[in-house]
Design a protein around this nucleic acid. Structure first.
Lengths: 200, 200
DNA sequence: GTCTATATCTGGATAGAC
DNA sequence: GTCTATCCAGATATAGAC
């Protein structure tokens, strides 16, 4: 029986996190309520607090998961690979994540816009280190003449800004372009842009 | 005496809007409280509700003002001007607005991320029309051979994404680059990028 | 493990004195 | 015009039955 109980636990925890993601990504931490998460997950409010000690615990579990998934693709960039293709692959991967996981993107955006009160330490440690490594790699590629000389940090920011824009500002994009999937065109544009910026 | 009262009114309304901007831009509509706005503005809670009928009224006054300021620079683009310079001027102007009014940018970002419940109609009307006009203008420039052939919508989105990124994701930028004003470098990068994308 | 009921607190808005 | 006091809805979290 223990196995069955564990399966229920996993299932409910997943349901709570899925519901939390949906609600938090739309309203931010303070704007979200346990009632919403309860309704969304199909569980009762006390039952949610049986699995997570508090509203904040759900939120932080989501953020922790998010940051891991967020940083891995940056770490996966191969220093030995072909520079333009490595950067392009990363950018395209990031764009696909925006299409597939727009709520994760919005959850993160909400947290950052509000001053990142819960993950500021992660930003100034892990994120900073990972990005500095990547920036160094890009600089090396520049110096070796493999890509054009370019500010690596603002290059990275431009990739983030453009990819996340289509997830975070989705309603605005749809208001202008009409309903539908505009990620394909966005990806084309981004690829074109990066090739122009990177090729010598 | 009436004149003095009016001056007090203006002063208090301004104080409330300034405080509201500060609070709403950080916590979003639902995450903000009248108490915070009261503390921030130095007025009492009932006194705030003497000047604005509700919390929502403050928020909407801010958004309305914002959208006006937001769209004007797009309208100011001169169809008769030199295309590359016109687009560049717009982009640089937008970047300067991000530096000077980051809270306005974050207020808007919060609203859009949360699905734009209060301004969706404006997005699908005014914003849409203004952007379509600009896109048409850019297409004409492309066809006339004055700039490179480019997707006008995604060009516009890329300008928005990059300029607003430095306001909305300020804490992240500072976590990576360290404290300081990084708008100058960002502007340089953006200008370089646009010249590469636009020149034939 | 899951529910009903509830304690406790906070927030938006109002009443009424000054 | 501005304040104190207060109402009432809604929110987190807990108690305790099942």
């Amino acid at each position: 029986m223990k196995k069955t109980e564990t399966r229920i636990q996993k299932k409910n925890q997943s349901a709570i996190k899925a519901a939390g993601l949906k609600v938090f990504s739309q309203f931010g931490f303070r704007g979200s309520t346990l009632d919403q998460i309860a309704t969304e997950s199909g569980l009762s409010k006390p039952n949610i607090l049986y699995y997570f000690s508090s509203k904040e615990a759900i939120y932080e579990a989501l953020l922790a998961q998010l940051l891991t998934d967020w940083l891995q693709p940056v770490r996966d960039i191969d220093p030995e690979g072909e520079p333009v293709e490595e950067i392009l692959n990363y950018a395209i991967h990031k764009m696909k994540m925006s299409r597939l996981y727009p709520r994760e993107s919005r959850l993160y955006a909400n947290e950052i816009i509000q001053g990142a009160p819960r993950i500021k330490s992660v930003l100034t440690c892990e994120l900073r280190d990972v990005v500095q490594s990547l920036a160094q790699l890009i600089s090396n590629w520049s110096e070796a003449g493999l890509i054009r000389v370019i500010d690596p940090y603002h290059l990275i920011f431009s990739i983030w800004a453009m990819t996340q824009h289509y997830a975070d500002f989705d309603v605005q994009v749809q208001a202008i372009l009409g309903d539908g999937d505009h990620f394909h065109d966005a990806e084309q544009y981004l690829e074109d842009m990066l090739r122009r910026m990177l090729t010598v």
